[in-house]
Write a protein that binds this DNA or RNA. Sequence first.
DNA 1: CTTGAGAGAATTCTCGAGAAAATATAGTTG
DNA 2: CAACTATATTTTCTCGAGAATTCTCTCAAG
Lengths: 222, 222
Amino acid sequence: MNKHINTVGSNTYQRIKHDIIYGELEPGTKLKLDGLKTRYAASLSTLREMLSRLASEGFVAAEEQRGFFVTPVSREDLIEITNLRVLLECSAVKESIENGDTDWEGNLVAAHHKLHLMEQKMLNGDETEKETWKRYDGEFHLAMIQACNSKNLLDIHATIYDKYLRYQMLVLTYRGQEAVDEHKAMFDAALARDAKLAQELLEKHIRKGVEHTLEKIFSVDE
Amino acid sequence: MNKHINTVGSNTYQRIKHDIIYGELEPGTKLKLDGLKTRYAASLSTLREMLSRLASEGFVAAEEQRGFFVTPVSREDLIEITNLRVLLECSAVKESIENGDTDWEGNLVAAHHKLHLMEQKMLNGDETEKETWKRYDGEFHLAMIQACNSKNLLDIHATIYDKYLRYQMLVLTYRGQEAVDEHKAMFDAALARDAKLAQELLEKHIRKGVEHTLEKIFSVDE
DNA sequence: CTTGAGAGAATTCTCGAGAAAATATAGTTG
DNA sequence: CAACTATATTTTCTCGAGAATTCTCTCAAG
């Protein structure tokens, strides 16, 4: 299915990134090279190379001569990430709806269908595949903006989305029917080529989801 | 003045990045590790680490098992970069104008003053310090958005701006009095706290500058 | 009881060497 | 002469070791 990238480097890169996003490496944790060496079975040089990459993407904080840390989380950071996501994704969805061809529509229909199936599963109480569900959610949002004609924008968006995803994983709340309806409404607006409506729905959708998250994570502490 | 970072790594990182932005390493060039090793006097591991970083920022293209290249330039890419810069910088300037405190105003006044002095020099035919001029230009634009309250946005903007700068350096045109007036108008709008006007002026300013560049680089070829 | 200095330990930073893969070259066959 | 194969060369990828730096703990002085 998905091509297996076989260098030690890109493998550990993906694993570390995954572990940060999905909370297995907790925010603020010191990433000691020697510890990572045993955990990921890679050499110091290789690890440094990948940590450097993750640092420039913002998942890792690097301090000169003092090592690497998992980037901490904070209320302010989540708000910044959210605003950026709204800005980028709303801009992209407009372009995408205006430029999208038949292939784009096809992929969008498929992505929404897969997401919808998973959402039904979740509504029925099956919470065994939260990670898969979130992946379909991401793929649906990506399908919406795929035709925006800007590789640069899609790249930046992907990173921002992953950062948003990390916050989601810290609580992993499911808004239920409400979110399902929002996805459907956005999907319909996109097929109807109503860019303005899609933008409005998208912004509300994103902000509502994050409010939910903000309350749960940063209600008392930090 | 500016603190000298002394590790071999960050030094070569800065030098390679500089050489890419200022065209000393031409777009598309194959970056052979062994060649870089002699040029920058650093080991393979260190070089790989820094090239990986530059790759994830988009200044270098990395192909699995096939090495590193200076990211190519293209008309489409410049247009994408421009649209992103407009999107990010206009959003940031609005926030900044609405939130900026006295410190922000002070820095902005200083940045505009320095830029203005340099522009006068350029108008008088002194073109010996183009790099300094472009630095002041960048610092002015940064000063405008500095108070936007989003580290994430400022980070992304900085990278996008550097990419824009590389295209500028490929031609290095000077629009003269026109650009000077535009800077002044934006500066005045910011001090008058007229966010909407500042946004409009900024978008026009950016797009005009790029049109100028587009014509010169991609008029015939590629 | 706090503060500072200094030795020792832990950690990061940098390097060159060997393994793995890709590219270029030469040789052979149809 | 073209196309394929085998070999040689180049280049990337990965690793562990040693140097440089930071951190930690102990102990003494005020």
